[in-house]
Design a protein around this nucleic acid. Structure first.
Lengths: 264, 264
DNA sequence: CGACACCTTGAAGAGGTTCAAGAAATGTGG
DNA sequence: CCACATTTCTTGAACCTCTTCAAGGTGTCG
């Protein structure tokens, strides 16, 4: 399986750089006012705790499409909450093989892989212009000792990631190509729905090759599966625009057990 | 892919139950004396902290071969440190499909999946008679707020699990059958080595079917790969006894990039 | 407009699965 | 303790899914 090349991107797109004569990559913000707070921060904090949480985010940082928020090998210092944009994370084997391990959207936290050895073990690459909140891990740790809700929240986030990966392992280990793609689409739709966004009109931020890497398939197989779904009237595909027409059919495909499964 | 059936086991084996008229499942122990401490507990604690850590383990619990330490759906209360024995963890899809998500040995921690929703999402089944230290999560959380080293240790354990799963995703997503099995054997050997055990004489605790589930292969493919390695003089196989004869060859198989990989 | 990246589709081929049968351990019960 | 049942493992052969290779199409951007 080929490594997925980082998308080239123009370093000076009109409208992005041009309008910002000063460096806007770092400036103070308040979590307490953030409309994504419910997604990345604990609920039920009192005013005092909320004020302290605001200290968590030191700065924000802009990440251009195609560039990395961090790369494997780099020192780990902070977790990142995605404020806007879309990321992929991918690991690379010694021999150069790559694997997309996840796609992350607004409200999700990335960087957890770096905690073990104070060093990132995967790359996080923006698939569209993005902005993240930089939360120094040292600061998170300190605050977690004092604010129980934050401690628990951090633990939940890490546990959730572990459980999510269990699901991916199930997918990679036991599903057929079309089942994988159906599961992938449903997952994306569900996450958009959770953010109050239109969940049947997907605008894919990643290439077929990236989807394929994530799903353990080649880009051709992904493309064929898309075409098959379209042919069956389950979705409507126009390159990266995917409209889900029949969610139930997708769910049926995922739950369709492989020919000889066990009914225990 | 068939679900892996729980191994039947005799509930009253001579020598196990017979010698224990009293219930030995719960009794006090001290982490500070445990020879596995380096594996599951933080290092560099002072005497006072060490004493507090000892409060972490409320009880131990015996788990017979073939029985579950916990099952998905059960309430989550504690993390478990494996003192002896060998476990598998597996997730089950709605349709009954199962996937082994890992094999755990002495010194490793299981139960992290339960933190998110206070409910276990996978099954942990002993593959040989085992004993675990029961560490109530509430107690861990409390203590982590006071002992920095414990807090960091907990975070590291969770992060390590995330990174481990990234590796499994890479394996499932991009490796051929023989590469997967080679990687599996090397991983087992490495973990035994880290425990100071003979790392070239493996006694597999799991069936071919369980290995297959973990590696996303059928049991036949696993068996054939074993035979192939034996034929090539890389290992010596006699059912569950595997002797690694040529570690370098195994490493070479794993790092052998798929035919057309990218050299970026 | 031309170059480039991305996507689609077809055809051939390979790797792994499925099905089947038998062998080797292991456990069971008389 | 031995015979039988069961589980686990091995191996072969046919089949199938997905990959690989190849070509052409589509959209984007300088």
């Amino acid at each position: 399986m080929k490594e997925i090349p980082v998308q080239k991107q123009s370093e000076n797109r009109p409208g992005a750089g041009a309008l910002r004569p000063v460096d806007m990559r770092t400036f103070k913000v308040a979590c307490s006012n953030c409309n994504l707070r419910e997604l990345c921060m604990p609920l039920g904090l009192d005013a005092g705790e909320l004020a302290r949480i605001d200290e968590l985010v030191l700065t924000r940082r802009q990440v251009r499409r195609g560039t990395a928020l961090f790369r494997h090998g780099e020192a780990f210092r902070s977790l990142f909450a995605i404020r806007s944009g879309f990321f992929k994370t991918c690991v690379t084997a010694d021999d150069g093989r790559g694997q997309v391990t996840g796609f992350q959207m607004a409200g999700e936290i990335i960087g957890l892989d770096g905690i073990v050895n104070n060093q990132h073990t995967c790359d996080a690459v923006a698939l569209e212009d993005a902005e993240v909140c930089v939360m120094p891990f040292e600061r998170i740790s300190e605050l977690a000792r004092e604010v129980d809700a934050l401690q628990h929240h951090l633990h939940r986030i890490m546990s959730r990631e572990i459980v999510r990966e269990h699901g991916v392992m199930l997918l990679l280990g036991s599903m057929r190509a079309e089942e994988r793609l159906a599961a992938f689409l449903l997952n994306l739709a569900q996450r958009l729905h959770a953010r109050g966004l239109a969940s049947h009109e997907l605008l894919l931020r990643m290439t077929r090759e990236e989807i394929g890497s994530y799903l353990g398939l080649t880009l051709e197989t992904v493309s064929r599966a898309f075409s098959k779904f379209a042919e069956d009237g389950i979705i409507d595909v126009r390159r990266r625009r995917v409209r889900i027409l029949d969610t139930a059919a997708l769910q049926h495909i995922v739950n369709q057990p492989a020919c000889n499964m066990k009914f225990s």
